[in-house]
Nucleic acid binder design. Structure first.
Length: 466
RNA sequence: GGCGCGGUAGCCAAGUGGUAAGGCAGAGGUCUGCAAAACCUUUAUUCGGGGGUUCGAUUCCCCCCCGCGCCUCCA
């Protein structure tokens, strides 16, 4: 079966192939940097990471752009409150965001582009829209006249014909002709940052930045555009109106939207106090891989309910995977090769690939991995797993980890060096030999306190960092 | 009201017109000085409820109930 994704635009599972060559041109709506990103945000970013990795596994090259929204109402409000310049204010959160994404092992898109460095492109986009009769000016601000774009609503599948000009539009601070119209360029206000441009002094509306930057780097038609479901309307709908209003060509072939994450079955909100950041989870002693695993394990189009029990379960699952790899790397296996096991590995890998090909069914893919692990563990226990099969098994595990990326433990600060650990193990083995179990258990506990777990096996002591 | 998503064991969750993957947790067992790891057995006669189509439906159709999201800023 071929690679296919669910396209919000067509509401169907569609076979995916890039428009040109082997390169996937992809855009992801990035963060607005007015605070630390929370785990819900990261779900929306783990998804394109898994997508990237799988596209690459399928032989494609990526040209992936993600924006940083560093000029916007909340930023202006909060930076003022903090008594900082916009740049001072946003740079803190931009840096934190990039740190967090690295901690979560999210691959860097080929380009990360800040909005404030693309003002000329946005102005130009607005000018093009004006040339094509899609805009009007009100109180010095430029608006998109949606009635000039009949296809408006095609992404969110909303029929807007009911709310037309003349309908009483809310008491908005802006003077719009039609409820659907949105601002492209906001006229400068006292005390707010503004750029002096041919379309007036002001700043860009939120929606124009994505269209302008996406088209600048990726051309008129993108293969994939990702974002959280909440962005479908109005943001992505507006992106389409802007881009297609300018080019007359299809802006995006595949719209992929990540479902939201809730916490204890509730929406994250300040009033509920259930907004967690990556930093919060680390303070509670959770490894970042656990969050990465949890966020990746539920297919991206399914709502994910975050709980600490779920996070613990994710951490335990990772342990199982790591134990398996460790066993594969350290156990002694009988000579020879088991042909049946080779075909078993091939079947597992095919099932793994098929699951991810199917709209990134990560839960299904994980199922194939664990099934395979149980089967081969059983074979090992029975002494029927020969040395000649190890490479094969490890390759499958590598393929898994090239997408999920959770096997390598995150570096710990401090702790014992390998040689210190080895020295204590030697001492403990001697104590055990003389049946001084008091001392040997003491050493095991000491090491455990340092995050080192011992396992006594037939071949001797095996250890790992927790 | 409009649009959309979902309701599968204690929790997370895959899935197909042919009789329920996987993970976590629980219980019992094997192994072990004890652990750990691993394995075995066990945990949904049943997939929100009711109709219908069918030889057969969790999977298709209809109705209903429940939860959630978007329709204003939001990943």
């Amino acid at each position: 079966m071929s690679l296919r994704f669910y396209n919000t635009l067509t509401q169907q599972l569609e076979e995916f192939k890039p428009l040109h060559d082997n390169v996937v041109r992809m855009y992801t709506c990035g963060p607005t940097v007015y605070n630390y990103a929370h785990i819900g945000n990261f779900r929306s970013f783990v998804f394109p990471d898994i997508l990237r990795r799988w596209l690459r596994a399928r032989g494609y090259t990526l040209d992936h752009v993600m924006n940083i929204t560093d000029i916007e109402d909340k930023i202006i409000r909060d930076s003022k409150a903090a008594g900082k310049s916009i740049d001072e204010f946003t740079s803190v959160y931009t840096t934190a965001f990039l740190e967090d994404t690295a901690t979560l092992r999210l691959e860097r898109p080929e380009r990360i582009v800040p909005a404030t460095q693309h003002i000329p492109e946005m102005v130009e986009a607005v000018q093009h829209l004006t040339e094509r009769g899609h805009t009007y000016v009100s109180d010095g601000s430029v608006y998109y006249r949606i009635s000039t774009f009949p296809e408006y609503g095609k992404l969110s599948h909303n029929d807007f014909s009911g709310i037309r000009a003349g309908a009483r539009v809310d008491v908005d601070e802006y003077d719009k002709d039609d409820a659907r119209d949105f601002v492209l360029w906001k006229a400068a206000k006292e005390g707010e940052p503004a750029w002096d441009t041919p379309i007036g002094k002001g700043r860009p509306g939120w929606h124009i930045e994505c269209s302008a930057m996406a088209m600048k780097y990726l051309g008129d038609t993108l293969d994939i555009h990702t974002g959280g479901v909440d962005l479908t309307f109005p943001h992505h709908e507006n992106e389409i109106a802007q881009a297609e209003g300018i080019t007359g060509k299809q802006f995006v072939r595949f719209w992929l939207h990540a479902e939201h994450l809730s916490v204890d079955s509730q929406k994250m909100s300040k009033s509920l106090g259930n907004i967690y950041t990556l930093r919060d989870l680390k303070e509670r002693g959770f490894a970042p891989e656990a969050l990465r695993y949890l966020l990746a394990s539920v297919p991206y189009r399914k709502k994910l309910n975050f709980t600490f029990d779920g996070l613990k379960a994710a951490a335990t699952s990772i342990e199982r995977l790591r134990n398996y790899k460790l066993r594969m790397e350290t156990d002694k296996f009988p000579d020879g090769t088991n042909a049946e096991l080779i075909s078993r590995t091939q079947a597992a890998r095919a099932a793994f690939d098929a699951a991810l090909d199917d709209d990134l069914n990560t839960a299904g893919a994980l199922g194939t991995v664990f099934e395979y692990i149980r089967d081969t563990n059983t074979a090992m226990d029975a002494g029927q797993f020969p040395a000649g099969n190890v490479t094969d098994a490890l390759e499958f595990l590598d393929r898994f980890d090239s997408v999920f990326d959770v096997l390598k433990p995150s570096a710990r600060i401090g702790g014992l060096s390998d040689s210190e650990v080895d020295a204590l193990i030697v001492e403990r083995t001697a104590a055990k030999k003389s049946r001084n179990f008091g001392r040997s258990d003491e050493i095991r506990a000491e090491l455990a306190a340092q995050g080192v777990i011992l396992e006594d096996t037939k071949e001797g002591v095996r250890w790992k960092r927790s």
